[in-house]
Computed example of a mutant assay.
Amino acid sequence: MTRFYDLASLTKPLVTAPLALAFLDLDADRRWRLGFHDRDTPLTVRQLLSHSSGLPPWRPFTGDPVAQQLRREVMGHPLLRPATPGLATYSDLNYRLLAELLEAETGVPFGRIGAASGLSPAPWRTRPTEVPDGPDAVAWPLATEVPLPSRSPWLPHDANARAGMQGHAGFGATPAQLEAALGRWVACGWPQRMAVETASGEEGTRWGLGLQVAHTGPGRFGQLLSRIPPGMGTCVIADSTEPAPPPAPGLDAHPGAASDWWFHLGFTGPALFYRPSDRACLGLLLHRRGPDGLLLDAESLRARRWAALARFVGQSGG
């Protein structure tokens, strides 16, 4: 049976960012339109795309405006912390606001305009492998009294998206569907426009307009990807191996030099890598459900991604 994958946050670079680049002015001040009336500095699409808006990582999607939610006090949880001053802070809220702006600008529901990507908007006709709830379900009751939305096999696996939050997740694909979508994505020039260094972020990250730089320090994906020879084209790796792979190499505290690759990761396991110099594009599809049925922690998930990439690099002559 052909597997269907919840792409999670790959929705950001594959759907939301291209739509924003196509329809929105990158530098117009959107403070007032988005309800940030007490913000002292402009709020732009460029900031939202590069996670340099100063918004915190996450708030539960309850239907309330982001600006209104941010006025409320929340209990301690890593997802509920404030942004790091002066550094890009990866935030689902940036892309939630982009979806709002896109709907207002086009007059078309986000899922409908996003379907032009060739990916499948939720609710899906085919169930992806079920992934247990993650940190957002734990943080949810710490930030709102609204009950956590119930699970559904036809909706994405994070609490936000199954409540209806758009822009940051909500699309899925089969391997063949993703490969076709990536081919169109590259041919239209979207990743070339996104792989432009825009903001420095937390822990040495460097963000463009929807993608981040892959570094070459020990244990970083850029270390592996830099061995892939030119001319790879577009390729999708669908890894369905259940046994746990060996641990990935240890991560050095310093990310190391920038590679010539850019990337994005999805909560449920998938990953996306792009090299502007030859427009090489690699999609990685895997599930975050471990052999015992539990959610893989971040290090176990990195090991699975590393193992799949290492096999591919070896097969490609790197």
Rank of each mutant, 00 (worst) to 15 (best):
N94V: 03
A244L: 14
G170M: 04
A169E: 05
T144L: 11
G231P: 13
L301I: 05
Y274F: 14
A99D: 04
P18I: 02
R30D: 13
A307S: 01
P128C: 08
L209E: 09
P123A: 14
D292P: 00
T268H: 11
S152N: 12
W32S: 07
F110L: 10
G170H: 05
F267A: 06
G189L: 09
E103L: 01
E242S: 07
P243A: 12
L301A: 02
I113Y: 06
R220F: 08
S300D: 09
S50A: 14
L142V: 08
R31K: 13
D297Q: 04
R302A: 10
L48M: 15
W124I: 09
T106C: 09
L224F: 04
P149S: 07
V313S: 03
L155H: 13
R162W: 09
G201N: 09
A99E: 06
D239W: 08
D38G: 12
W124E: 06
G283T: 05
P175F: 08
G222H: 02
L43C: 10
E130F: 03
A143T: 09
G54E: 05
P135H: 01
R289P: 03
R31H: 12
A180F: 02
D278Y: 00
H254F: 10
A248L: 07
H264K: 14
R30H: 14
L224P: 03
P255C: 09
E197V: 13
L98R: 02
A159H: 11
R39N: 11
R162D: 06
P85I: 14
L24R: 09
P218V: 11
R288Q: 08
D158H: 14
P218C: 12
E145K: 05
G208R: 06
